[in-house]
Nucleic acid binder design. Structure first.
Length: 801
RNA sequence: GCGGGUGUGGCGGAAUGGCAGACGCGACAGAUUUAGGAUCUGUUGUCACACGGCGUAUGAGUUCGAGUCUCUUCACCCGCACCA
């Protein structure tokens, strides 16, 4: 060994070896225990990989390499989520087909991933934009359609004027478009939905059966937002229809002093000739429509509204006539779009009542309703038969019974989550396989005609009329109805970005199957995914959507488990060196391939795992990258200190075993930073000694391999340790040899540190008293009376005197 | 407003209720070097010459012992949000 460490050279060499040996491909047999590790496949953007991708993949990369060495059959696949708006926008700009752009980007990404040395199974690569793949996306969609989970409705939708597409609720969080971040507007539109709300309870209950961090579970729970309450019918004066409202506090019905309807409530249009001040209503509506979602929910503290003239409602329990308002603090998208207002016990109603001069009648004892609404619990008052109850649980139950008896109300459940607006008025997505027949209505494309291929177009520009570019292709649009054979037209919307990723993990288990999305045997063996790592930003999008699809496939008997992922984890962001989120505009973006060119892939991998707690955000630091390179160079130079002994010297037994234990455990806990620190400490000990035996070196290289596979393989080979590390077993440790024969413990007097003494290993709690004979300890106690001795073996001796 | 989280040296960060600051960066010193760089060795929370004292956002509490557990206050981050 007289070479210096040259990462560029050895990394290329080992990447080729691994590829030629096919050593990271999952084995076809099903005898071994399996381990399915999944990381979120990327959208192949033109700018290539981001350091965030490296961190996201490196975590399970380490676990996968370790599990292979432990004898598992490991599936660690990679593919590309290749349909999507950025490629299409770029296509419009450069007038190049998105397929060409996507193919180029995929090749670029793949090349980059290989240069990092990730141990992905490339034989199972998939791309969601390829017909072989999206055939099955369409197939699952048709199954959803067949089971009544696809519907079309004209409602207010989230629309991005910049991208010219309808967005789902999940894609417009905070009133911003998920793709371009511009303000989303509400428009009435006729679009396709998937009935995800039908699965709300299953998605909630399923969380109890999986191993996800609490932060993720909580976020899903609050996004689904289940609430239980009651629907109550209010009669309206002079209108034959009842006004149905939703409330979680039906026991406060006696305190209802007015009603509020959302400005968009359909009943208004239906009976507009009975509304004396219709002009005022229309003006208010126009004003509301102008506000963005953001203004309507965040900035507007002042309640606004219009009282409907000529209309009043009747409180169904008290029989009192009460006024009806429209106000934009009531949303059409939640509950029934109308509420019963109880100003004494709801702050929003209270504010509205104050401004519009409505009565405030307390029905729960407590608080001071002159100052604010009282939302706490207490005895019911002014409420007839409910006055007998002193807590809301009982009073709600009593009222529910009453409402049911009288037939004016019923128990109900509401979710914040809305049905999934499932459409894009764009080109680069899966064509929705539905046909509109004037005679038969909406008909699914027959399964044997899948895939319904995306036709070539000349112009990818979305239509100004809100229609997809597909609508301009007559040969695509015009077809015959599969039912009646008559002339019909194809649906021209495409599926949203999240369609292809909602089931991709299933395709990985059997990617070349052309009979089914995946074979039963393969699914029974590989599913569920044992460990899925990805970004926190996907919790209320991809994670929710894919769980929904999987629950559905389970219900129709197509997959073997309801939940797709047994365990989920996430990684923290890598921030720029200025502590800000990396972005091109801030100029703080780090290109991972620059780091590879300068320091090597092993240094990059080591750094992203060492930089801090894996789940926490941490800023990039160039100097720390150098420190990681320095560590690898120290490992490299250990070759100069090598002793011919194949074993481990007695003095090194404890450090070797302790390192193996720490690394083994910490890799599994995603505590990569402390695992690496343990290896650094171990190397420091070898340097302090000035020597390392071959046995001591072997242990280090095996432990280091999952993080820095190239350098460890290279040194392994140079030392002549035999078969490459990818064929070796993970090292075990001997618990007996974890600590040396003597150990230093702390001596405390009343909890204050006073001295450190060496004691033999293996003392038990009972030996504590005997330590009082130690000279150092005797000196500390002096003449004092020992009242209590606390001895924690291996750690400390605390004497109370 | 609701939910979740975080707060430890100059910096990134370690610590099953048991020696706070592992490991790394940076800094300082020494060795080597014509010099710089690289490398190796040492020092590096803070006050103090020292003995020792003080230190994990804040104030209290539990305990032989608290960064860790309980309560208080403050600050910051993330998610949701007129959700009836």
């Amino acid at each position: 060994m007289n070479k210096t460490y040259n990462p560029q050279e050895i990394e290329k060499k080992w990447q080729k070896r691994w590829e030629d040996a096919h050593c990271f491909e999952a084995e076809a047999g099903h005898e071994k225990p399996k381990f399915y590790a999944l990381v979120e496949f990327p959208y192949p953007s033109g700018s290539g990989m981001h350091v965030g991708h490296i961190k996201a993949y490196s975590g399970l990369e380490v676990v996968s390499r370790k599990r292979r060495m432990e004898g598992y059959n490991v599936l660690f696949p990679m593919g590309f989520d290749s349909f999507g708006l950025p490629a299409e926008n770029y296509a419009i700009k450069t007038n190049t087909h998105p397929h060409i752009i996507t193919t180029r980007n995929v090749e670029h990404f793949k090349d980059q991933m290989k240069r990092i040395g990730f141990s992905f199974d490339w034989s199972r690569e998939i791309s969601t934009s390829l017909p072989d793949y999206y055939k099955w996306t369409q197939w699952i969609f048709l199954k959803l359609f067949d089971h009544g989970l696809v519907f079309r409705a004209k409602t207010l939708v989230n629309y991005c004027p910049h991208c010219k597409v309808v967005l789902s609720n999940e894609d417009s969080q905070g009133g911003k478009c998920d793709v371009c971040h511009s303000d989303v507007v509400q428009l009435p539109k006729d679009v396709w939905y998937l009935r995800i709300t039908e699965y709300a309870d299953k998605l909630l209950d399923g969380l109890d059966t999986v191993d996800y961090p609490d932060s993720i579970k909580q976020q899903e729970v609050s996004w689904i937002g289940r609430s239980t309450g009651a629907f109550v019918d209010f009669a309206l004066d002079g209108i034959p229809e009842k006004l149905e409202i939703y409330t979680t506090r039906c026991d406060t019905l006696y305190g209802v002093t007015f009603m509020v309807m959302a400005p968009e409530h359909p009943l208004l249009d239906q009976y507009k000739d009975r509304i004396a001040n219709w002009g005022e209503v229309e003006a208010y509506r126009a004003e509301c429509a102008k506000k963005t979602e953001f203004e309507r929910t965040q900035l507007v503290k002042d309640k606004t509204g219009v009282k409907l003239a000529g209309i009043s409602a009747v409180n169904p329990v008290s029989g009192k006539k009460i006024p009806v308002f429209i106000a934009d603090y009531v949303m059409m998208g939640y509950g029934t779009g109308a509420i019963m207002a109880v100003p004494a016990h709801d702050q929003r109603d209270w504010e509205f009542a104050r401004k519009f001069g409505a009565d405030i009648i307390p029905v729960i004892e407590g608080g001071d309703i002159e100052k604010e609404a009282y939302t706490g619990d207490g005895r019911m008052i002014n409420s007839d038969f409910l006055n007998a109850y002193d807590n809301k649980k009982d009073s709600i139950e009593a009222m529910l019974r009453y409402l049911a008896e009288k037939g004016i109300g019923r128990k109900g459940v509401q979710y914040k989550m809305k049905d999934w607006a499932f459409n894009r008025q764009r080109y680069w997505g899966e064509p929705i396989p539905l046909i509109h027949c004037p005679k038969c209505g909406t008909v699914g494309v027959p399964y044997d005609q899948l895939p319904l291929r995306l036709p070539d177009v000349e112009n990818f520009e979305p239509g100004t009329d809100g229609q997809s570019p597909l609508a301009r292709i007559e040969s695509f649009v015009n077809c015959t109805c599969p039912k009646c054979g008559g002339p019909a037209k194809r649906e021209t919307d495409t599926m949203p970005q999240w369609a292809g990723s909602s089931w991709y993990f299933l395709r990985f288990v059997d990617p070349h199957n052309d009979e089914a999305f995946a074979g039963r045997d393969e699914m029974n063996y590989w599913m569920p995914v044992d460990w899925y790592n990805g970004g926190m930003e996907h919790v209320t999008r991809h994670l929710l959507y894919s769980r929904f699809w999987h629950h559905f496939l389970y219900d129709i008997g197509e997959v073997n488990t309801p939940e797709p992922y047994a365990k989920r984890s996430y990684q923290g962001l890598i921030l720029g060196s200025d502590g800000e989120k990396m972005s091109k505009s801030k100029g703080n973006v780090i290109d991972p391939l620059d780091i590879v060119a300068q320091y090597g892939a092993d240094t990059l991998r080591l750094y992203v795992l060492f930089m801090g707690d894996y789940t926490a955000a941490a800023p990039w630091n160039d100097d720390s990258v150098k420190g990681c390179k320095r560590f690898l160079e120290r490992v490299w130079r250990l070759q100069e200190m090598l002793l011919p002994d194949e074993g481990v010297r007695p003095a090194m037994e404890a450090p070797v075993n302790a390192m193996i234990k720490k690394v083994s455990e910490d890799y599994e806990r995603m505590k990569y930073n402390t695992a690496i620190a343990a290896m650094m400490s171990y190397v420091n000990e070898l340097y302090a000694d000035g020597h390392a035996t071959r046995g001591e070196m072997r242990a280090l290289l095996l432990c280091l391999n999952p993080v820095a596979p190239h350098i460890s393989e290279e040194i392994w080979e140079a030392c002549g340790f035999g078969e490459p590390i990818y064929r070796q077993s993970w090292p075990g440790y001997d618990p007996e040899k974890l600590v040396a024969s003597e150990v230093e413990i702390a001596v405390q007097i009343r909890g204050k540190l006073r001295a450190r003494i060496m004691v033999p290993t293996g003392l038990t709690q009972a030996d504590g008293e005997s330590l009082l004979e130690n000279e150092t300890v005797k000196g500390l106690i002096g003449d004092a009376q020992v009242r209590k001795v606390i001895f924690v073996p291996g750690r400390l001796l605390n004497i109370v005197c």
